[in-house]
Amino acid sequence: MVLTLRRIAIFLLSLIPFFYLLQAVVRLQAGEWDILGPEPGREIVFFTGTWAFNFLLLTLVITPAKDILKQKWLIVHRRMIGLFAFFYASLHLLAYFAFLLEWQWPELGKEIIERPYLLVGMLAWLMLVPLTITSTKNWQRRLKRNWKKLHKLVYFIGLLAAVHYLLQIRSSWFEPVLYTVLLLLVLAPRFMQSRRPNTQG
């Protein structure tokens, strides 16, 4: 019962950014043009990307939090939070195609050349796809030890997300650097553990 309530609570809380964005878009359609700023399409792309990174960080922080706080129940909810990272990353990619690229597919190659952070971001999203597909217990049983190896890709995905963010710096360094530092702090214990002899990564 407690587990079910926790899952429902996490699910609903994870949807808050989506519903906030949804009501902002509805208000924008109703004529409240300033709700998403002067460039609403760009703001939607940024908003969804930020929340994709937020959930990616939450996914990565669960294991060390579980060890530090001695709360094993946290690990049960890692899959749902990881799925929300993919959900917001997919919205981010869709928003880019819709509002910035405007579905002009012939322009995509030119965009990637001029803005290499797009290639980095798309690579991160593509790597999230197999992790999302194989996130179920059934796939965990089928892949066995390889499942854990595959899902360690999330560390590399996190680094790609940080590079994707850093390459977009135009004026303020604060948020991209902050997210990168937080990511490195989360990954540092895993890296140190993998360097120790006779330990598993």
Rank of each mutant, 00 (worst) to 15 (best):
N54L: 11
I10D: 00
N54R: 15
L101M: 12
L36G: 04
R145I: 10
L108M: 14
V61T: 12
W105Y: 14
E39D: 15
G121E: 05
I10P: 02
L150V: 07
L57M: 13
I10S: 08
F84V: 00
E39N: 12
I133K: 04
P38C: 12
K149E: 02
G121H: 09
L58A: 13
F53R: 12
L93E: 10
I81M: 10
Q23G: 05
W125F: 15
L83I: 01
F19D: 04
D67S: 13
Q23K: 11
A95C: 11
V120S: 05
L15Q: 03
T48L: 06
L131V: 02
P130Q: 05
A24V: 07
A89H: 00
F97S: 02
I62G: 07
I113M: 14
N146F: 12
M122G: 13
F46L: 00
N138P: 03
L12C: 10
Y20G: 08
T132Y: 03
L12G: 00
N146V: 10
A98M: 09
A9F: 15
N146P: 00
L22A: 06
W139P: 01
I75Q: 08
R42Q: 10
L56W: 01
F99K: 01
W105Q: 09
S135A: 08
I16M: 07
V45N: 07
N146T: 11
I35G: 05
T132C: 05
R115D: 04
L94C: 08
V120N: 04
Q23Y: 10
A85P: 03
F84Q: 02
W33Y: 15
K66G: 14
G31S: 10
L143S: 09
F55T: 01
W125G: 03
K110W: 15
L128I: 09
S90C: 03
F97G: 02
I10G: 04
G82S: 06
P130K: 08
R42W: 09
K72N: 14
V25M: 11
L57G: 07
F46S: 04
L58R: 09
K144Y: 02
W73Y: 13
Y96F: 15
G31V: 12
W125C: 10
I68N: 09
W125E: 06
R145G: 12
V26E: 10
T59F: 13
L108D: 01
W73M: 08
R115P: 02
R27M: 11
L22C: 05
Y117G: 09
R78N: 03
